[in-house]
Amino acid sequence: MTSCHIAEEHIQKVAIFGGTHGNELTGVFLVKHWLENGAEIQRTGLEVKPFITNPRAVKKCTRYIDCDLNRIFDLENLGKKMSEDLPYEVRRAQEINHLFGPKDSEDSYDIIFDLHNTTSNMGCTLILEDSRNNFLIQMFHYIKTSLAPLPCYVYLIEHPSLKYATTRSIAKYPVGIEVGPQPQGVLRADILDQMRKMIKHALDFIHHFNEGKEFPPCAIEVYKIIEKVDYPRDENGEIAAIIHPNLQDQDWKPLHPGDPMFLTLDGKTIPLGGDCTVYPVFVNEAAYYEKKEAFAKTTKLTLNAKSIRCCLH
């Protein structure tokens, strides 16, 4: 018999989150649709729960009410004593943790798909938090293969000092899905179709896995975050240069030392320094102006996964 890495157990509980950011409308629209008619997301033997994560922000069509829901799922915020004085999103995070967690427990949901849009030209993107997770690498390989020839990129946010504390991190297997470009507060049919297909293929993978299909060893190309880059700023902290036209919409493309990065209003080009080629992502993302992030630098690498098969009882 072929030796293989056996994944822990079959997958039982899956959640699909929309509206973690209330103005990213593809996930909101799909989740609302699936709450009314969820036939397309159901798979035999699998509990799939669509869920609106930040209903107040969705109602106002804004990213958040008090603070970013997708950055506060750490033990400090989840452990705060519940009171009306807490920011709305912290209270909501505790409610979500109660419903789908608790985080880092045996009772937490197996998989959470968190649906997002970006204003950046990132196409279909899967966000991975753990480079050693054979199950998710296999799932992402399946999704990428199923979507081809449509490109699907994998963004690895594993980093020693950049801690995200994402909404989906309460699950055993957290999956971020990011599709763009799409303006905030807008629905685009092409973007919706791409996100819908990503979810379909992900659920198909889980179904095949649960039925005992063995997935042979595989490898995927990923883009691992190195650092986030702020806009150049003046002495008052105001933005002093904008994304250069040569960099705009060039997510995932190589940016070499000396290539144009920013452009000042008086026409001066600010190039990339250093001696390493990087791959920019979230270029000129609207939501990241407040976070002082013009783009993120990534490096390209390959992740390998062992063969996996479900432990059938």
Rank of each mutant, 00 (worst) to 15 (best):
P149N: 01
D249P: 04
N54V: 02
E290N: 12
F73H: 11
H159V: 08
C310L: 12
L255Q: 00
Y279M: 01
P149A: 02
I191H: 01
A241P: 00
A296L: 08
F73Q: 11
I177D: 03
R91C: 14
P217R: 05
Y231Q: 01
K228S: 10
M195L: 01
L46D: 03
A165N: 15
L301A: 08
G101M: 06
A202Y: 06
I220Q: 04
G38H: 11
L187C: 11
D104H: 15
A296M: 12
F262H: 02
R309S: 11
E290L: 08
P245L: 03
V175F: 00
P245V: 02
N37L: 05
N246Q: 12
K103L: 11
E227C: 05
A57F: 05
L126I: 03
L115E: 05
E238H: 10
A57Q: 05
I137Q: 00
P257N: 00
T145L: 10
I11S: 00
D74I: 09
N70Y: 06
R92Y: 06
H207W: 11
E8N: 14
L78N: 10
F73T: 12
I157V: 15
E106I: 12
N236Q: 11
Q12H: 07
R233S: 07
G22T: 08
E290K: 11
T20D: 00
A286M: 08
A294R: 05
R63M: 09
C310H: 12
P181T: 04
H33K: 15
T264G: 09
H33V: 00
D190F: 04
P160R: 11
I137W: 04
A7D: 15
R56A: 14
S161A: 12
N37D: 13
T269A: 09
T145V: 12
M82C: 14
G180H: 02
D251P: 02
T26K: 05
Y279H: 08
L46E: 05
L115A: 04
G185V: 04
L272Q: 06
I239N: 00
C311H: 15
V31M: 03
E8T: 12
F135E: 03
V283R: 05
E293C: 15
M139Y: 01
L147S: 01
M82K: 13
V222E: 03
K144A: 11
H244A: 07
E24T: 06
T269I: 12
R91K: 14
Y288P: 09
H159D: 15
H141S: 08
E290T: 10
V175R: 00
D259F: 00
F135M: 04
I170T: 08
P151Q: 09
P257W: 02
L78P: 10
Y231L: 06
T302G: 01
L150G: 06
D114P: 02
N97Y: 10
M198H: 04
L272A: 10
E227Q: 07
Q194C: 11
K292C: 09
V175H: 05
G27W: 05
T167E: 06
T269G: 02
I199K: 05
G19W: 02
V186I: 11
C124D: 05
F282Q: 11
V48E: 04
F51H: 09
L115W: 01
L156G: 01
M261R: 06
F135S: 02
D190E: 11
W34K: 03
E84R: 13
I220T: 04
I226F: 11
K300L: 09
K197D: 09
K268L: 08
L69N: 06
L303Y: 02
G212Q: 02
P257T: 02
L136T: 03
Q182I: 09
E285F: 04
M139S: 01
N246V: 07
R309I: 07
P280I: 05
S161R: 12
K103V: 11
K81M: 14
T264N: 06
P260L: 01
E40I: 04
P257S: 00
N121Y: 00
C276A: 15
W34D: 04
I243T: 00
E227Y: 04
H313I: 15
F209W: 10
A305V: 01
C124F: 04
M195W: 04
P174F: 14
P271C: 13
I177R: 02
S120P: 01
I52D: 04
L255N: 03
I111L: 09
C124V: 07
A287D: 12
Y164S: 15
C61N: 13
K213C: 13
I6E: 15
A57V: 02
P160N: 12
I177C: 01
V28C: 15
F205D: 03
L147P: 00
F135Y: 07
C61D: 08
I41K: 06
Y109N: 03
M122C: 15
G273R: 10
Y64K: 09
F209Y: 14
G185F: 01
E47Y: 09
K60A: 14
G22Y: 07
G101P: 07
A7I: 12
H159G: 13
D266S: 09
Y153I: 00
H244K: 03
Q42R: 11
P149K: 00
V283A: 06
V281Y: 03
I16L: 09
I191T: 00
E290D: 13
G274A: 03
T145M: 13
D251Q: 01
H33S: 10
F29M: 14
A39K: 12
D275G: 08
A39D: 13
S131P: 14
K13V: 00
L263D: 05
V31G: 03
T53F: 03
V229E: 08
M122G: 01
I137T: 00
A202Q: 00
T299G: 07
K144Q: 15
L162D: 15
P55E: 14
V229Y: 02
V281T: 11
L263R: 07
G27K: 04
D110G: 01
K49N: 09
D204F: 03
E158T: 06
M82R: 13
S169Q: 10
I206P: 00
N284A: 08
V31Y: 06
K49R: 12
N134C: 09
I65A: 08
L303R: 03
A219E: 15
N23Y: 00
C4H: 15
K300W: 00
I191A: 07
P151T: 07
E238P: 04
I16P: 03
F73E: 12
V281W: 04
K81R: 13
A171G: 09
V90P: 07
I11V: 10
H207V: 15
L147G: 01
E129D: 14
C218H: 01
F262Q: 04
I308W: 00
V283T: 06
E84S: 14
L162K: 15
E285I: 03
T125F: 08
S146I: 03
V229S: 00
R168I: 06
W252G: 07
W252S: 02
D234I: 00
M139A: 01
